[in-house]
Amino acid sequence: MAYKVIHYINQFFANIGGEEMAHIAPEIREGAVGPGLGLNQQFKGEAEIIATVVCGDSYFNENIEAATTKIIDLIKDYQADLFIAGPAFNAGRYGTACGTICKAVQDKLNIPTLTGMYIENPGADMFKKEVYIIETSNAATGMRKALPKIGSLAMKIVKGEDILDAKTEGYMLRGIRKNYFADKIGAERAVDMLVKKLTGEEYTTEYPMPEFDRVNPGAAIKDLSKARIALVTSGGIVPKGNPDHIESSSASKYGKYEISKVSDLTSAEYETAHGGYDPVYANEEPDRVLPLDVLRDLEKEGVIGSIHPYFYTTVGNGTAVKSAKAFSEEIAGKLLNDGVDAVILTST
């Protein structure tokens, strides 16, 4: 049986009309429509467009949430193997719609997706990290060249075949780091690269430097004696036994634990889950990493207003920046909600 594909296009490619019809709400039609007919030919009978969603570009962009929900609802019972949107070429709103709906279908229905557009389409920068976007020319005259690339990658995705690098397959670089075995060992590659760099020959770095997200320090607290202070750590201090099983490296989660009745973190009750440093001193006296004991003294002395009744903790060891960023955004949101004025953030 052929793989089932659902296709998304705008009002223009559905032959409904141009800008004057861009307001139409999402609708679904059985089978292929417009460029979908050309796509079907690429599948050579191994896959087939079983339904086409048509939506006006203005409608989608002005009602992103409603449009997305409606489209998900329209297609969810088809049990499709793949969702293809566009190609959108250089049409900005169409490109944004293609990216948005692909990401939503991936996330909500767990169906792989694929789209195509021109590299300068604003949808490209917004979604190329999360969605396969085949690079096309800037106008619909490039349809004939775009369809074979879309068709070929589509077949690889549905068949679960190895997807090669961006250049070979024709999709935009997603920035996903993927391991592979090179022809030469790293040391030989390093010496090759150095010789080229010294002689002015062209070479390719294996890891282009990322751009860093630098954070400016917040404004100083004017009156500490009224401030509510929270303790947050990436040093892995957890209640004994690590009840939430935070990983010793590459943490996938953080923990939130109550300390309203605790004035000292003892080795009987707390320990570290961190696998990147010698845990002996942290386990002997967990306050060394999460300084609750001295903070309680300061609270008693009236130097600080109060200590937030919960501490947040994770393991910083080998943890992806993306995960750390997600944890910190959630934690910061909760602390703000709880009226916390300042945080003592300890690392190891």
Binding site: R177, K178, Y180, I185, G186
Partner: peptide, 14 residues
Amino acid sequence: TNELGFNKLSAKSL
């Protein structure tokens, strides 16, 4: 993932 370049393993951006 030895950092003396002992292995053939590397990574690339997809």
